[in-house]
């Protein structure tokens, strides 16, 4: 009997220690990093309960094991067998039913919490998201804006209608706690109500190829006023960009080119465009070519036609079906990068 009392106490002590240990590591109370959405509240709440139950169950098993190891040890030179106990049906039923109850309760809480997370606001702001190897593009259909940054007003539900141009990606903002895959051929939905102003990042969480690691995009959550100001500014920029160069720059955002090509010389997945036009380009087959308009156009329409030295074949760059005018605009823009 005394054994049971001691172990019982041990379990309690250990549960408390485990729980506070996890809390000290910052992992028990809420998930990390900061919670920045209305949805995260119910998720963090569930997590909190889970950590408590897990700490208890862990201790419930580990404490008696450690106790047994110390107290019921074979002494040196002793060659005795333990007590002959074959089993106990009541106990077995008990530790089947007990966990069963916990499980059912947690499944219920999980379903409840999911319901909270999925609560729909019919007034939600709609933004279209286009994911492609390895960039994010955001389109505000109401305002005719396309941007590589996602700006959101605080405390207002938004629904992202997400599409992929190539493979599966996944939209995750750790601070929002939510994640949704983006599957080619269908539109998936991501609903979130940001509650904390600040700068975050969307991080692609589905392996989508070579540069999956760098598929991150900036998110700015700001007050309604700042958000409105940003919209105005973007509209003005779009209006100003009526030159071929301006259009070309927009196209590089819209088509995700800048996910792989830098405009300032920093190395990325693809070769930089800085000082590209007119230069001599070494190709993988050992020859060189002058980067004239024809070469640039060919590189965009059929990336495999000529592979630049140092890059793998087949090219990771997808072929783009763009109109002649769009190609011309792109080239005009690339030419400005000196």
């Amino acid at each position: 009997m005394i054994h049971f009392v001691i172990v019982g106490l041990l379990v309690v002590v250990m549960t408390v220690l485990t729980y506070f240990g996890l809390d000290a590591a910052g992992l028990a109370d809420q998930m990390h990093p900061v919670a920045a959405s209305a949805q995260s509240a119910s998720i963090d709440q569930l997590w909190h309960w889970e950590v408590m139950v897990v700490s208890f169950l862990f201790s419930l098993i580990v404490a008696p094991i450690i106790y047994s190891l110390i107290v019921f040890r074979q002494k040196k030179g002793e060659m005795k067998d333990g007590e002959h106990m074959e089993g106990n049906t009541n106990l077995e039923i008990g530790w089947t039913v007990g966990p069963l109850i916990i499980v059912v309760v947690f499944a219920y809480l999980g379903a409840y919490s999911l319901g909270e997370v999925r609560r729909v606001d019919p007034e939600a702001l709609v933004i279209n998201v286009k994911a492609r190897q390895f960039t994010w593009t955001f389109e505000y259909p109401e305002y005719g804006i396309v941007s590589e940054e996602l700006h959101l007003p605080v405390d207002k539900q938004v629904v992202l209608k997400m599409e992929s141009a190539d493979v599966i990606h996944s939209f995750w903002v750790p601070e929002f706690r939510l994640k949704q895959d983006i599957v080619p051929g269908r539109v998936t939905e991501y609903r979130v109500t940001p509650t904390l102003e600040g700068n975050y990042k969307v991080r692609c969480t589905e392996l989508c190829g070579m540069s999956h690691y760098s598929m991150e995009g900036p998110i700015v959550v700001s007050s309604q006023a700042d958000y409105d100001a940003w919209i105005m500014e973007q509209q003005a920029l779009a209006a100003a960009a009526q030159t071929p160069e301006g259009q070309g720059k927009l196209l590089t955002v819209r088509n995700g080119c800048i996910g792989c090509h830098s405009v300032d010389g920093t190395p990325m997945t693809g070769p930089t465009w800085f000082n590209l036009a007119g230069s001599e380009v070494a190709l993988a087959d050992g020859t060189t070519v002058i980067a004239d308009d024809a070469f640039l156009a060919e590189s965009i329409l059929d990336p495999n036609a000529k592979i630049v030295a140092g890059f793998q074949s087949p090219s990771v760059m997808p072929p783009y079906a763009l109109t002649d005018e769009e190609i011309a605009n792109l080239i005009a823009y690339i030419k400005t990068l000196k």
Binding site: H3, I65, F72, Q74, K80, L91, E92, V103
Partner: peptide
């Protein structure tokens, strides 16, 4: 979540096996 139940049975039974044994 249901899988936790039969797995739990194993754990509790192992603990009970250790209980009052002569462990080396």
């Amino acid at each position: 979540l249901l899988v936790a139940v039969p797995t739990g049975v194993k754990f509790f039974s192992w603990v009970a096996t250790l209980w009052k044994g002569k462990i080396s």
